[in-house]
Design a protein around this nucleic acid. Structure first.
Lengths: 328, 328
DNA sequence: GCCCACATTGTTAACGCTCACATTGGGGAC
DNA sequence: GTCCCCAATGTGAGCGTTAACAATGTGGGC
């Protein structure tokens, strides 16, 4: 930086001003400095800046399993959005989403003096940790516990599940069965709630819940059970992979979809349109979630006001060929 | 840090020594310092350390589409592996893998003084950029151009494709058709090469290539074509999603898998076991790739020797029910 | 008992940047 | 013409850490 200043014939402070887009710099000076920067291939040292300002232009993300489609998409969207705002993203994966692991991951981020932290905390066990974190950095929870008093962005699971269930009821089915996600996920809980809501609102009987765990494997197991029950004509699964497993089980038992049984999933993974048959599903808008998370973070950063900010992103029903009316 | 030093009754330098596990510190002193650290909830400032050492304990990753299963898995594995070595990972996504974008992403990482950079560069357009990067930081390419003189870790695409093709030939098929990935991906090229190799080695005819683009959609289109060709009895697709599309097309045309046509994919996505029918595929070991990449990075970091280090990770054939002998 | 080597600890100076404040030089109001 | 204000720039300090070296203490060899 000193070199740049010397070459441009100004002080290091003026170079700093140019770098930070400070207003009070003469156009001519600015150009001279920029020329010097280009000539020397100068690259400002973020670490030094972070040291003096106490904040780096980095956002830390805490997540558990970034291999799953949902988290991976969310992470990618966060990274994109952050980049647009001039922030980098560092990932802190965590084996379990319990209090100890989350705290450790957050500590690691704090050591880097990140500007803010996004915790993707979709399970029960994460809840407690979030209230006991250091308050000296903006924090946003994604897919977290709606009952906790922390800034939160979530996909509206209830609305999505309600739409899916209603879609099946509207097609003429007497009731809809549900293969759920793991019990400790808020996503599961919301989707179960939406499913029940829709059934009750329509005056339909609420069949027993079939518990799954997100994987195609468990969907397959649940599907084998459902395939043997002649009264089942409509199934809403908590995600597309469960639906894939269910579809295969139904196929193996010779039960045709959608002629005999209709199936609706959740997530709209890119392959869902190529399942057999193409899957009707619910698409969450990960980009909107990322956008909202970052906005909440930046708002805290600027106004320094924590509080109970929260935002809910409505998903969209994507209609494909896995739904039809019930057989006569 | 000064506070800690005062509380422990030592100098800040001794605190620093304890923090960095320096050998020459008396046990008693160490304990006293650690107690003080715990009591004050002190958290070392990584930015300050990065400033003075000129290197942060962060590894930068440049990747394009971290939503795809392969890149996402690799990224997660890298993050895990890096964490075990005490490194954090920051992601720099990039819209296109061309020279300008890659340079920009690398520059961003360099501004943060990352300890090393991993570029996931699976396409042709990335190649050139990599040779013209600043040499002042260790760099490893994953899935990059085998012909470039840069440290490189790749999955052995050729071996994987050869195994897949041979598996089909061994089942008795006269030849094997191939639905490939996009032409500018090295992964595609390697898989095509392995496929051709295996066919030639077996003295089988090499049918024309069916070009796809990784997506289930394009697999579906290719599948529709293949379904109409009665002579096709075995298809090797460049990834599992293509296979999914092919499976659906075949299903729609009433061509049974594996009775009439066998299909093999590549990637072993978690759902592959629940396709209809369960898909025989080739599983790359992303953890091993991540491990190797990090090793190469750390080796450069320690010995300061660049050079033509490269490592190839062999994938495994996973046999499921989508393969059988040809119809008589 | 003296001296030296070595283990342990302290002192000082960077690292590269921003912040707060000081300084300079015009231009407009009177 | 004088004064004041403000835009443009410069100066010095300090952010929290590590590196290099200095200083102190401790024990063993002779």
């Amino acid at each position: 930086m000193t070199d740049v200043a010397r070459l441009a014939g100004v002080s290091h402070q003026t170079v700093s001003r140019v770098l930070n887009g400070h207003p009070n710099v003469r156009e001519q000076t600015r150009l001279r400095v920029q020329a010097a920067i280009a000539e020397l291939g100068y690259r400002p040292n973020r670490a030094a800046r972070a040291l003096v300002t106490g904040r780096s232009q980095v956002i830390g993300v805490v997540a558990q399993n970034t291999t799953l489609y949902g988290p991976a998409s969310l992470l990618a969207a966060l990274e994109q959005t952050a980049a647009e705002e001039g922030f980098a993203v560092t990932v802190g994966s965590v084996r379990d989403l319990d209090r100890v692991s989350i705290s450790a991951a957050v500590e690691r981020h704090l050591a880097h003096r990140v500007a803010g932290i996004v915790v993707i905390a979709p399970v029960e066990s994460a809840g407690e940790a979030l209230e006991h974190l250091p308050k000296d950095v903006p924090l946003v929870t994604v897919d977290g516990d709606p009952r906790r008093p922390v800034p939160l962005v979530t996909v509206d699971q209830v609305a999505g599940a309600r739409a899916a269930t209603r879609h099946l009821l509207d097609a003429g089915h007497r009731t809809v069965w549900h293969v759920s996600g793991p019990a400790d996920w808020f996503d599961s809980a919301g989707r179960i709630e939406g499913w029940r809501d829709a059934l009750r609102a329509a005056g339909a009987e609420v069949p027993p819940l079939i518990p799954g765990d997100w994987s195609a494997a468990s969907g397959y197991r649940c599907g084998q059970m459902l395939a043997r029950m002649p009264e089942v004509t409509a199934v809403f699964t908590a995600n597309d992979h469960l639906a894939l497993g269910v579809l295969r089980a139904l196929h193996e038992h010779g039960r045709r979809v959608p002629d005999e049984i209709s199936v609706v999933g959740f997530d709209d993974v890119p392959e869902a349109a190529y399942f057999i048959p193409p899957l009707t599903t619910v698409r969450p808008d990960f980009v909107a979630v990322a956008r909202a998370s970052l906005d909440l973070l930046l708002a805290q950063l600027e106004s320094d006001r924590g509080g109970e900010l929260r935002q809910t992103i409505a998903p969209t029903l994507i209609s494909r060929q896995s739904v039809a009316g019930p057989p006569d």
